[in-house]
Design a protein around this nucleic acid. Sequence first.
DNA 1: TTTTACTGGTCTG
DNA 2: CAGACCAGTAAAA
Length: 146
Amino acid sequence: MFDIRLFGDVGLRIYLKDDKIKRIEFVRSASSNAPSHLVEKFSPYIRGEGDPALKMEDLDLEGYTENMLRVYHALREVCTFGKVVTYSLLAEITGTHPRFVGYCMKVNRFPIVIPCHRVVGKRGLGGFSFGEDIKRRLLSFEGVNL
DNA sequence: TTTTACTGGTCTG
DNA sequence: CAGACCAGTAAAA
């Protein structure tokens, strides 16, 4: 389990098992204690320049269904650093439903790598499991203003 | 503006 | 199987 500081008092806590990422969560007081090879992966994001150098293959995706994985893949394709997408557009792309997309974001174990904070409502911000303030700060960090 | 109705994948009993 | 749950949205009131 390692912490990486992103900005301010916001950081990531990363759980590893073997060479895969088991889970990522946000922490509010981040002490950076991750090994450099792991920090390296996230450094583009930390510098505010782009997405982390991680692929879906680096994640332990056990338990997710085909439809969920389709949503996650589509999100990563459509929504790179600094972009946002709407629940309904992502639903349209994947042939699902806006409420299902919301559910997928809620059960996403890999925030930032699967950028669920970039999915917003057609009217309004939409929710965020780790608190809407963090969602807002992440978007503003990426240069997005609602 | 607020409330209602519909939505589809998934989860629980 | 039936019913409930949602980080949503359009339509009605």
